[in-house]
């Protein structure tokens, strides 16, 4: 069972996804954090998210790449936060250059493997596609990968929500 939560930056998609998870009764709630800290701003962002989910009963697992390797209980719910960081880590953190299709294939395989380990999986992903800016080739490749992954995730998901100003719209 996969639920996809899609939205822009500052849309309230994380809080919406956390709320979804908190409405369920699985014995364990895992928060799969994919963001790597590389500067003070990232630290602040991570801290903000930590505060936001405080008291919600999440067990945090930091897994910036290779989410298929995550160890979780079979009757648990996993919140993957978020796909845009995971794609960036998988694409840019490794030495070798991966194409966007290779990257998408690998991540989708990992998602499927992870979803089989847990009872439910909620994935937060980003809308970065509507600013009309023509970016450099590296950024475009990243956008292609995330776009393709989002599309495939939507097909795999039982429910898809787009979050706008904190309100979830079922797609």
């Amino acid at each position: 069972m996969i639920t996809l939560v899609y939205g822009g930056s500052g849309s309230g998609k994380s809080a919406f996804a956390e709320d979804l998870v908190c409405k369920t009764n699985y014995p364990n709630r895992y928060y799969l954090a994919t963001m790597k800290s590389f500067d003070e701003e990232a630290d602040r962002r991570i801290e903000k998210h930590r505060k936001q989910r405080e008291g919600m009963g999440f067990i945090t697992i930091e897994q910036p790449t290779d989410i298929a390797n995550t160890i979780v209980d079979a009757d648990s719910i996993v919140l993957l936060e978020c796909m845009s960081n995971l794609v960036a880590n998988e694409m840019f953190a490794v030495e070798r250059n991966v194409s966007f299709t290779e990257c998408a294939d690998k991540i989708i395989d990992d998602v499927i493997a992870l979803s089989k380990k847990a009872a439910a999986l909620v994935i937060v992903t980003n809308n970065i596609f509507e600013d009309g800016v023509s970016y450099d080739e590296g950024t475009k490749e990243y956008m292609r990968a995330l776009g393709l992954i989002n599309e495939r995730l939507a097909k795999l998901s039982n429910e898809v929500y787009e979050v706008v100003v904190g309100i979830g719209i079922k797609l």
Partner: peptide, 15 residues
């Protein structure tokens, strides 16, 4: 306007 649906801006003030 919805302004959050884009790539993370390079400029800190824009972010």
């Amino acid at each position: 306007d919805e302004i959050g649906n884009g790539v993370v801006p390079m400029d800190a003030n824009e972010r």
